[in-house]
Nucleic acid binder design. Structure first.
Lengths: 253, 253
DNA sequence: CGCTTAGTTGACTCTTCTCAAAAGCAGTGG
DNA sequence: CCACTGCTTTTGAGAAGAGTCAACTAAGCG
């Protein structure tokens, strides 16, 4: 298997920040040493690791998570194609959380040394990658608000809005639907609620005719209504969200 | 007023990452253009701003927050002396949240241009500052776990453990106590719970004899017990936490 | 076809929120 | 010095949200 095309999602995402020259794209594409596959449920990186490669998710969904003392786990972030798992660990001596494959995943490995020279020698790429981590942080803040202050239905609806934009940004959404390859248990672990409650919350969103699900496909039937219902404002994603541009109303939050 | 001493807390914090040379410390100290005072409740930076200065908190407590559509607010991070408010905004066109003074605050202003040259020309400082933002992100992840998956008493207790370490790291803790200049309403806004419930939760922690409060002073009577009770593991703070080193037991999370 | 995993349902319990009011504690002006 | 005001903390009680336990259904698979 070749490493061609590994970076298309990443490039597509970064160009929401700034157009990249063909040369920059080449550099990115050439930085991939090899690709690795992970089965659903397996760890891409485990807490305590100090990886030699930066992991770029090429295909599938992964999640950052921590295990809880009661045996449960909390998922703190979703990673989709184009997302870098661990630019950060370059400086921290040890991973303070794990990253697990939520579906079958394909991961491109970029040697740490390569990333470092890339970032030292190419200001555009350095800034673009840094921008990516800042967006990740902004998403984390929004999740904290979501989990801390939004009622269950808004919580889940908000997440769906976000993932619609994010999948769309890397070309993985079609119309207003996208593939959400997660079990309800995993969604519950993400939103900090019980499986049963997640199940009922999804039912409620369906009966409000805000979303339709078909297997692991989520369709947003009425994006304007869902946006309004969840008080969703895509500002925090810091990217052009075409679908949403016309829907925004002035508001706090 | 002079700008002398503005950077002592920052330097002290950064040295948890790596010792700084006297020259590096000089550079930091000289980067401060001026200092500004903010009264409690006032905004240091408001959502939508694009500041020309990086704000370094020198004295007092501040918080990152977002306003909610129901009029409430959610505090997503505490900033204490030595914390930089917005190294990040250098790249994002717009602040996606606000930073408000929770107590009377003194803030040092570092011109963006100064920070940029500093980070371009001094690898040690660049890495140290970057390390700081990575720790902020790690804290954010831990808060997400806390708010999403821990029961109320553990939630608040965990926060107290964290703030004990963080204040201690910049010399603001004495023994096992520190000044927490926040109202219960502000704590509630932080932990995503109601004022009434925060009040009762604090009472519970007191009656468990885990903490004592005196005005805005918090004393951790039994650090080992509180650590155990809240399943607190300081790993995510990525700094030498002297007080805790001997208390840790092997565990998940 | 039996096995396993994921989704669904019902009933009950416990946590947490809301509303409302009282109590404590500055700071202010008379 | 005291009444008054505004803010924070505390209490009480009922309602709503969310968790748990347990069973049942649906779907995929050897």
């Amino acid at each position: 298997m070749t490493t061609d095309g590994c970076c298309t999602a990443l490039i597509r995402k970064l160009e929401h920040f700034k157009k990249l020259s063909d040369e920059d794209k080449e550099l990115l594409a050439n930085s991939v040493a090899k690709t690795v596959e992970f089965g659903p449920g397996s760890d891409i990186i485990t807490q305590g690791d100090q990886p030699d490669y930066v992991h770029l998710l090429v295909d599938g969904w992964a999640g950052r998570y921590k295990l809880l003392q009661d045996g449960g786990r909390n998922i703190m972030a979703f990673l989709i194609p184009g997302d870098l798992c661990d630019v950060n660990v370059a400086l921290l001596e040890e991973m303070d959380h794990s990253i697990g494959a939520l579906s079958a995943c394909k991961v491109a490995l970029i040697p740490l040394a390569t990333i470092r020279t890339l970032m030292d020698e190419n200001r555009t790429l350095a800034r673009a990658l840094w921008w990516g981590t800042l967006v990740d942080e902004a998403v984390l803040r929004e999740w904290l608000v979501t989990v801390g202050s939004r009622p269950a239905q808004q919580r889940v609806g908000h997440l769906i809005c976000e993932m619609l934009i994010r999948t769309d940004a890397v070309g993985l959404a079609s119309g207003n639907s996208f593939d959400l390859p997660l079990s309800q248990q995993e969604l519950a672990d993400t939103m900090g609620m019980s499986l049963v409650h997640m199940n009922r919350t999804l039912q409620a969103l369906r009966s409000r005719e805000l979303i339709t699900t078909n297997g692991h496909k989520v369709m947003v039937d009425n994006l304007r209504a869902l946006t309004k219902f969840t008080a969703f404002d895509p500002l925090y994603l810091h990217q052009q969200a075409h679908k949403f541009r016309s829907l925004m109303q002035p508001k706090v939050l």
